[in-house]
Design a protein around this nucleic acid. Structure first.
Lengths: 232, 232
DNA sequence: AGGCTAATGACAGCCGCTGACAGTTGACAA
DNA sequence: TTGTCAACTGTCAGCGGCTGTCATTAGCCT
C-alpha cells in the first residue's frame, strides 16, 4: 500500500523555482542546470535506447547525480518524459484564450492551433533541441506505458480547454454537453493525426502541422451520411 | 532494464484455455475456478479499498494462492482489472460487424451500441456480478493509472473498429482519413459520456446507455457554427 | 500403479519509488 | 570574515510490481 508522502513532490512544476527570475543566485542556477541536464539526459536515453530500457539510475548517472536526486526534480520517470510537452500544451491553451469570441468553437480551436505552432517550437527549443522532442514523440507512440500516460494527460488538457470554450460561449460546462463534445472531437482528431504522423518518416513539426490541418478538414464530411455518394 | 521473458505471459487471454470446451477435465475446472476467484477478489478489493491500495499479495491471499500464481493468470495487476472490459468490448465489435452495410458509418456505430447493451450485460454477468463491474468503472475514472490504461485500450479498440468501418465502405484505412476520424469522434463522445456518468449517482448500465444516446445526439449540432443562434 | 507433464509455491532479484538521516554547501547577517 | 541556518544532496533501507528458476505437487494417461 502506498501512502501519501509527507514531503511535497514536484508533481508537474517545481513551485520553488518561481523566485529564480528576481535574482538567480548560485543555488538557483545550479538547480536549473541540474534539472536541464537530467531532462536532456533522460530524453536522449529514451530516444536512443527506449523508455523501458532506460532506468532512472541510468539517467541519474548520465547527469552525475544520485537516483534520489532525480526524484527530487521529477515526481516520476514519466514526469520527466512529459516535462517538455507540458510547456507546449500551455502555449496552445494560451492561444485558445486569445481567440476572438465571435469565432465558432471548432474554428477557434483550429485557428488557435495554427497560430501556436511557431510559439510552441520556440518554447521547446528553450529547453531541449526541438528535433529531440519531435523524435521523442515516436517513443511515446510506440511505448504502451507512455502512450497511456499521454492520453490521460490529453483528456486533462481537454477538460481545461472545454472550460475555456464554455466560458467563451457563456455556457455551463456541466449543463450543456456541447463544449466537452467539440473539444473531445477536436482532441480525437489530434490524436489520430499524431499517430499517423509518428508512423511516417518526416518527424518534423511542419509535417505534423500540415497533417493536422488536413485531417481537421475531414471532420465534417466524415460525419455526414453516405461517403460513397460524395468524393474524397 | 526489463528483458523479454522466455516463457509466454498470459497477456490478454490464456491461449491454452481453448481446448477446455472439448472436455473440461478436473485440471481445467480448477484453473477456471482459480482465475474466476482471483478476478472477483481483485475487483472486490479494488472497489472496496481502491486500486492503488490493493497489493497483488492481497488479491492472491484472498484467493488462497501465491502471488506468483496470480501473475500466471494475469500479465499484470492492470490486466486483471480490465479482464471483464475486454469481454464487453468484444461484444460491441461483433455488433458493429453485424450492422447492414447500407447504414452510414456513424449511424452504424450508434445502432451497434444500442443493440449490444443487453448482450454486454449478459456476458459480464457470466463472469462477475454486473453491479460490481459497473462500480469498478468509477474506480477506473478516479484512478490515474487505470484511467490512462483505459484510454490506451480504448484507442486500440478504435483502431480495430476503424478497420471494420473501412471494410464496410470499401476504403483503404491508410489512404482515407475518414474511417479513423469518425471512429475517433464516436470514441471521444463515449469517453466524455463515461466520465459524466461515473461522476453521477446512478451507476447502472441503463443510465450509461441513456446518457450515451443523449450525447451522441449532440455531436452534429455541436460541430456546426454558432451555438448561440440555435437552441440547446 | 507408475510415469509424464502441467500447475503451483518458495525464493531470489530487478526496477520504480519513498522515507529517514546525515553530510555538504550556498545564503545571509553579525 | 565568519558563523549560523536552510537548502540540496547522497546513502541506506524498504515496499510493491513483476520475472526467472527450481523443486514439489497433483491431474492425466497407459
Amino acid at each position: 500500500m502506498k501512502v501519501a508522502g509527507t514531503s511535497a513532490p514536484p508533481e508537474t512544476a517545481p513551485p520553488e523555482t518561481a523566485p529564480a527570475a528576481s535574482r538567480p543566485g548560485l543555488r538557483e542556477l545550479k538547480k536549473q542546470r541540474t534539472r536541464d541536464l537530467l531532462l536532456r539526459s533522460a530524453l536522449e536515453l529514451f530516444t536512443e535506447r527506449g523508455y523501458e530500457e532506460t532506468t532512472v539510475d541510468d539517467i541519474a548517472e548520465a547527469a552525475d547525480v544520485s537516483q534520489r536526486t532525480f526524484f527530487r526534480y521529477f515526481a516520476s520517470k514519466e514526469d520527466a518524459a512529459f516535462f517538455v510537452s507540458r510547456l507546449a500544451e500551455s502555449r496552445f491553451v494560451e492561444a485558445v484564450h486569445a481567440r476572438p469570441p465571435e469565432e465558432a468553437p471548432l474554428d477557434a480551436l483550429r485557428l488557435a492551433l495554427a497560430a501556436s505552432w511557431s510559439t510552441i517550437g520556440e518554447a521547446v527549443e528553450q529547453l531541449v533541441p526541438l528535433e529531440l522532442h519531435m523524435r521523442f514523440y515516436r517513443v511515446i507512440e510506440s511505448t504502451p506505458a507512455l502512450l497511456a500516460a499521454h492520453l490521460r494527460r490529453a483528456t486533462e488538457l481537454e477538460e481545461e480547454i472545454a472550460r475555456v470554450v464554455a466560458g467563451r460561449e457563456g455556457l455551463d460546462l456541466d449543463a450543456d454537453p456541447r463544449p466537452r463534445v467539440v473539444v473531445a472531437v477536436f482532441g480525437a482528431v489530434m490524436r489520430v493525426t499524431e499517430r499517423i504522423w509518428s508512423a511516417r518518416d518526416d518527424a518534423s513539426l511542419a509535417a505534423l502541422r500540415d497533417l493536422t490541418a488536413d485531417y481537421l478538414d475531414h471532420v465534417a464530411p466524415a460525419l455526414t451520411g453516405n461517403w460513397r455518394s460524395s468524393e474524397t
